[in-house]
Computed example of a mutant assay.
Amino acid sequence: MYLVHVSLHAPAGPAELPDDTRELLLAAAVTEEGIEHVSVHAGAVPHPVLGVFVLADGLEDAEERAQAFCRRVVALAPGLTGWRVRGAQAPLVAAFYERLLAGPGPAGRNGPGTIPST
């Protein structure tokens, strides 16, 4: 499963995403798209962002699926009239966590220790 961030462009003038954006998206998802979960970050700067969790065979496939899904729903959902998909990409956070785990510090949650997942 991949997390893909899909950024949105608001229609002209002041506009806010509807409160039910998440529900609109999930209701429109079809099994073949592999959409598992959606989170809405309406206050993201400079543009609102949708966090789309998608099952896919690879990163490129996940980004394409998430973008196609969001474009389809934004074009059809009455509550999203005028909104456009700007782009989709997986956030790259792995390096940050690898650095945290490899860095010096006490054993435990952020370093080697007795926790089985470390």
Rank of each mutant, 00 (worst) to 15 (best):
L3N: 03
A12I: 00
G13N: 05
L17D: 08
D20P: 10
E23M: 15
E23G: 13
L26Q: 01
A27R: 12
A28E: 11
A28N: 06
A29M: 12
A29W: 02
A29H: 06
V30I: 09
V30K: 07
V30L: 10
E32K: 02
E32P: 02
E36M: 08
V40K: 14
H41L: 06
G43E: 13
V49E: 01
V49G: 03
G51D: 09
V52H: 13
L55S: 11
L55A: 13
A56N: 09
D57L: 06
D57T: 02
D61T: 01
A62F: 08
E63V: 06
R65E: 09
A66M: 14
A66Q: 13
A68Y: 00
F69L: 12
C70V: 14
C70Q: 11
R71K: 04
R71Q: 09
V73K: 13
V73L: 14
A75R: 04
L76G: 13
L76S: 15
L76N: 11
P78M: 10
P78N: 11
G79D: 14
G79T: 12
L80R: 09
W83C: 09
G87C: 03
A90Q: 08
R99F: 10
A102V: 02
P104T: 04
P104E: 06
G105K: 08
A107H: 03
R109N: 07
N110A: 15
P116L: 13
